[in-house]
Write a protein that binds this DNA or RNA. Structure first.
Lengths: 336, 336
DNA sequence: CTGAAAGCGCTTACAG
DNA sequence: CTGAAAGCGCTTACAG
């Protein structure tokens, strides 16, 4: 990385002069045109980029805490909005003088990000939607800043998680109440971790309530609207249609509903649908039909994340915190 | 802001010692327990926070360009995912060694953000979804870094905009083709700028095609699913229902569809619906019915933003660029 | 018109 | 076990 010194040397002037030109003060400070041009040329030649760190230090910029939210950039970006709004809401409510910044990463590639291992970039980080490989990386990591995992559990980190057993129980209870003995499950293929736990929670609850989930009633697909469509079509082609189905996201449920509606399979009379909710709750409020959801308590989880970070940054509290939060059940027309 | 010097003075030790304690090297460097405690106490007392800028400078951290995406944190967060994915896609495609960071701001309060006026925080910024007041602020601003406006126009800035006239024409043409003479319009109350232009474009196109939009056919509401519901209910109560309606977002269109479906008003037989699309296009693909949209060419717009920034940062190109991009029409079942 | 020097707040190699 | 000093890359007040 060339520095201002290199530019000065190449241009044959002092670093003061370079700085002046750099800051568009050449005219004001009456730098000779010729000199300015030499400097500009050297800058271009060297591809010189001023060091922001040096500038910040020099100008004694404020030093308010910066919280990074690490979130992957795939279909899960759909869930980002709600998390972000939750975080900002709590920051505002608590008057926490801080800045939140979203860093996107690619799943399985969290290790490429240097924000967690550098003390110099962020004051703290919230890490969400990690893959199994990312989790392994985190397991082994000696992070340089406080970290809170969002809906993921690793003992050594602060964690804020949805209560997946409760999610399962809330969904399964409705199906049990309505007399179902067999339930279908639509979920993501190669399910990410959170989904895995949600699904486990659901299956466990089903068992405890005498509901069965047969092998061929588990449909794995991509976690998109289209995926929901494909899954429902697969169910339709099967020998006996289920009378109840749980979908691991609103996208899946909306896609599936579309297919059922189209094929004159009445929801909830012919088939009842429950979705696990990750997006803002109104996204399933006016679908056909409005969907019953067991929703991630995203707002509450975000609030916990902020509170944990405030405790660490402001009060210097060092114990690791694990929070488990209850999901939100919203019963709507897709169940009887 | 207390510095390491202040801590050293209060603790009665040298700054080296403070630094050692700070970096958890107290044991390794065999600092006396007593000394370490004095330091820790001083840190707590002064609420000392190390300067990240100084640390970065000292450790000669890499200095890769950081691009800030300014986006407001309201219902428009729903549109953020698509923009973000577009930006990242192009960054990846062009192998641009840079980082993108999302900075959320509150509408009308862009002036409170200091990232645009400081040379020390970001290398460049993309600013989206500004309010009128934010635009006034930008008009008067002497920004310190390159700025690209996303779907907003101010002559002195780089701008990447949707072609709102074309959007209007694409939508209006369908209605004209299907013989409509009167069309209703559902849009946000106190419409934000982009909406205003989209709407103007639509009205202009309608006029040119002999379609009328009567006063009481313009329904202003909040830009949410619920808002769409309320607007449609209002139309239903009117003396003569429109046979065609344009909605300024998918949320509005989905809410309105819900009401029409519920009241046995057939789409598209009884009423045709077109929505302006801002979210990812599959969000309206499996609604009831699938919605015809005129979609913001978000991916293309994002690509332009990145390209403009690359030109400035890498090639030192200084001319202001204005790009106008054609919207994407997706005809689906909500029109005949 | 231009340059030498101080100093922003840290960390680290070195000395003792 | 602890401290004095150098230096990271800038900007700005000052001198000439």
């Amino acid at each position: 990385m060339p520095t201002i010194k290199d530019v000065a040397r190449l241009a044959g002037v002092s670093i003061s002069t370079v700085s002046i030109v750099l800051n568009d003060k050449a005219e004001e400070r009456k730098v000779a045109k010729e000199t300015a041009e030499k400097v500009l040329e050297a800058i271009k030649l060297l591809e010189y980029k001023p060091s922001m760190a040096a500038r910040r230090l020099r100008s004694s910029d404020e030093n308010k805490p910066v919280i990074a939210l690490y979130w992957p950039l795939d279909y899960r970006t759909n869930f980002l909005a709600r998390v972000l709004m939750g975080l900002q809401g709590e920051i505002k409510r608590r008057n926490f003088d801080s800045e939140i910044i979203v860093c996107t990463y690619e799943n399985d590639n969290l290790y490429k990000e240097n924000g967690l291992t550098s003390k110099n970039k962020f004051s703290a980080a919230i890490v969400g939607a990690t893959s199994e490989k990312d989790m392994e990386y985190l397991e082994g990591l000696e992070s340089s800043i406080p970290i809170v995992l969002y809906n993921r559990f690793i003992d050594k980190y602060n964690c804020v998680c949805n209560n997946d057993e409760e999610s399962g129980l809330k969904a399964a209870s409705i199906f049990a109440r309505n007399g179902h003995k067999r339930v279908a499950l639509i979920c993501e293929d190669g399910s990410p971790i959170a989904a895995m736990y949600r699904i486990k929670g659901f299956i466990k609850a089903c068992k405890s309530l005498g509901i069965e989930i047969e092998e061929d009633y588990v449909i794995k697909t991509e976690n998109t609207y289209k995926g929901g469509v494909l899954a429902a079509e697969k169910l339709l082609k099967g020998t006996n249609m289920p009378r109840a189905v749980i979908c691991d996201s609103e996208m899946l449920a909306i896609g599936a509903s579309y297919v059922f509606n189209k094929n004159n399979i009445k929801i909830p009379e012919d088939i009842e649908i429950i979705a696990y909710g990750l997006m803002s709750t109104d996204s399933t409020e006016y679908t056909t039909p409005p969907l019953t959801i067991v929703s991630i308590p995203s707002e509450e989880m975000s609030a916990h994340c902020i509170n944990i970070i405030m405790d660490i940054l402001n009060l210097n509290i060092k114990e690791t915190v694990h929070k488990i939060v209850s999901p939100i059940l919203m019963v709507r027309d897709s169940v009887k």
